[in-house]
Nucleic acid binder design. Structure first.
Length: 561
RNA sequence: AGGGGCAUGGUGCAACGGCAGCACAGCGGACUUUGAAUCCGUUGAUCCUGGUUCGAAUCCAAGUGCCCCUGCCA
């Protein structure tokens, strides 16, 4: 069975197949990924990444990384670097690192060409006037009084714009198309505006900057891009994309629009993400609660899982809202295969084995992947009379179906011994300070010599050998599935989950975890997947981030009651 | 209201005139030294109305709903 025979093609591939049948691009496929360096890449961009790089790879072509940097006041090299890092992390290789600003001179010449053809003119309408002249959705606009200047005058004025003779906002270069068009984008769109601003790459060389519409298609054309994929909101811009290319009579790529990725329990617009950062709802763009790729990397999401998720979501033109649980499924699926198991106690309570010699210590070899009998790697785990277990793993008055430790009940300490709880130490308020138990020496390793079974198996850490750590547990930033669906007058920031970060101090970890490095995934058994925090951990002062909890059907069942 | 786009289980995606399928979620069970994983089973959908056709999710017509567009943002 070949993989190909069972995977259907998405609509973009069907378009390309058609191009290949008709020979439109001579069988070539070349794509580009065009981020604006004004923020961090998020999971939504990853969809574009997978489409742009995936399509090119599938058809034997290449992909350029091209920063869409035509607006100097919004863009910064900080973002240029962050974007590059994210792309590499995901495992994509671009053919060239390019910038729309590389083409400023060529774009200028193209504008001159359109002026000479009588297809562009210098306008002096103010921003407000231009809005009035543009008309409305239902009524056409009217021509600017400057629309019929001579070609010579336009040429001279445009050159003087470039030389810096005019103040910001006083002049624009506009395409002369059709002020009555039902498509507002065709009502003499602005091609160039005056902006005396320093650009992150060209510095102060320019004081006029091209608009997106005038830059994107021609940049595609210059690079020989065949298929220019973008999100649905650019559909209305395609006639303009085509118009510039046709009037300029240059190589004409095909723009294809797909629906962007939306996900439950988060927001995806850069504006909103920036707001969360600036107003302090999160620490930064890489706060693990953010849907940015850098945040996911920090939280321990494997790039393979993210790509598998995007593949599973598919490509179409439907406005879609993907459940964040689908992403989590792929993350767990990947981590389950790659994260070595370790024991860690997040909310410790002391467990004292009364009949275990006080001065005795022993060690158990434990596999990194106990569910895989072929696994040969592992570590030694020390065991002694005083241990820590999870508070949740002991219940003085157990509820029905609870089969962890409770008075007079026997459970297995994972990989070690069977123990039976016998008593508790309590303070004046009745709070349990420690649990006492006895162990059965004939159950060493976790199996009883007489073959008897226990219902529960709990994890533990030897108290004198434990290392301390801080653990950060994150929850969704928004409890609402659709935080952007708001009642009139409410802000999405009003709905930020105030309890989305829980900091646990004094967690007790098995000693092997002292070696943990950021970026290494671990499964803390029965707790979830964790990763040393690349930002807060210092040698000897580890901080772990919970990437994701394990699926917990017990907790779910309890919550339903 | 004008223009553009989209409608298939709870969610996302297939089926391209011929048995509506896959993934996630859900539900039930088996197994278990992780209440995880794994395994087995299972509920559930073609926006509406009419037409063409032996046969329509698919083609045609009329409707309905949702999204995008009035930046010198991208």
């Amino acid at each position: 069975m070949t993989e190909e025979s069972f995977t259907s093609k998405n609509f973009i591939e069907e378009i390309i197949d058609e191009h290949n049948r008709t020979g439109r691009f001579g069988g070539k496929v070349k794509t580009r990924f065009p981020p604006e360096p004004n923020g961090y890449l998020h999971i939504g961009h990853c969809k574009a990444l997978v489409i742009d790089f995936g399509i090119a790879e599938k058809y034997g072509g290449t992909t350029n990384l091209r920063y869409d940097d035509t607006n100097p006041v919004k863009e910064d090299t900080e973002y240029v670097d962050a974007i590059k890092e994210d792309i590499h992390w995901l495992g994509f290789d671009y053919a060239n690192e390019l910038y729309a600003s590389d083409y400023f001179e060529a774009l200028y010449e193209m504008a001159v060409k359109l002026i000479k053809k009588g297809k562009a003119y210098v306008d002096e309408l103010t921003a407000e006037e231009m809005r009035e002249y543009r008309g409305t959705l239902t009524e056409g606009g009217k021509n600017s009084p400057w629309r019929e200047r001579s070609i010579e005058e336009n040429l001279e004025l445009f050159e003087r714009m470039r030389r810096g003779e005019f103040a910001d906002g006083t002049k624009t270069l506009r395409a002369k198309i059709d002020m009555a068009s039902p498509n507002i984008n065709m009502r003499d769109p602005v091609m160039y505006r005056v902006m005396h601003a320093t650009h992150h790459r060209t510095g102060d060389k320019w004081c006029i900057y091209p608009m997106y519409d005038f830059a994107h298609g021609q940049s595609d054309s210059i690079e020989g891009i065949t298929h220019s994929m973008c999100s649905l909101e650019y559909e209305n811009h395609r006639p303009l994309y085509d118009w510039f290319l046709d009037e300029l009579e240059i190589f004409h790529p095909q723009q294809i629009e797909f629906s962007r990725l939306n996900m439950t329990h988060t927001v995806m617009s850069k504006r909103k993400l920036r707001l969360l950062v600036e107003q302090g709802y999160v620490d930064s763009w890489i706060d693990p609660r953010m849907p940015t790729l850098a945040a996911m990397r920090r939280a321990g999401y494997p790039p393979k899982a993210i790509r598998a998720f995007i593949e599973a979501v598919g490509v179409a033109k439907n406005e879609s809202f993907v459940d964040v649980e689908l992403l989590e499924h792929f993350v767990r699926d990947q981590l389950n295969q790659t994260a070595p198991r370790r024991m860690a106690i997040l909310r410790p309570i002391k467990l004292v084995i009364d009949n275990y010699p006080a001065d005795q210590t022993e060690e158990f070899w434990v596999s990194d992947f106990p569910q895989n009998p072929e696994c040969t790697t592992g570590r030694m785990v020390p065991f002694s009379r005083e241990l820590y277990i999870e508070q949740d793993d002991f219940m003085e008055n157990p509820v029905p179906k609870y089969f962890r430790l409770s008075p007079e009940r026997e459970v297995r300490l994972m990989n070690a011994y069977f123990v039976t709880a016998v008593s508790m130490d309590k303070d004046a308020e009745g709070k349990i300070l420690a649990v006492h138990c006895t162990y059965d020496p004939d159950t060493r390793g976790g199996n009883a010599a007489d073959g008897r079974k226990v219902k529960g198996t709990i994890h533990w850490v030897s108290a004198p050998h434990a290392i301390n750590a801080e653990v950060h547990l994150y929850d969704y930033l928004f409890k609402d599935e659709h935080p952007e669906d708001l009642p009139e007058g409410e802000l999405f920031t009003d709905h930020v989950n105030k309890n989305s970060l829980e900091v646990l101090v004094g967690c007790k970890l098995e000693p092997a975890l002292a070696e943990a490095k950021p970026g290494q995934p671990w499964q803390f058994v029965r707790n979830g997947y964790f990763n040393a925090d690349s930002f807060n951990s210092k040698p000897g002062e580890l901080v772990f981030i919970r990437t994701l909890s394990l699926v917990d059907s017990w907790a779910k069942q309890q919550a339903q009651k």
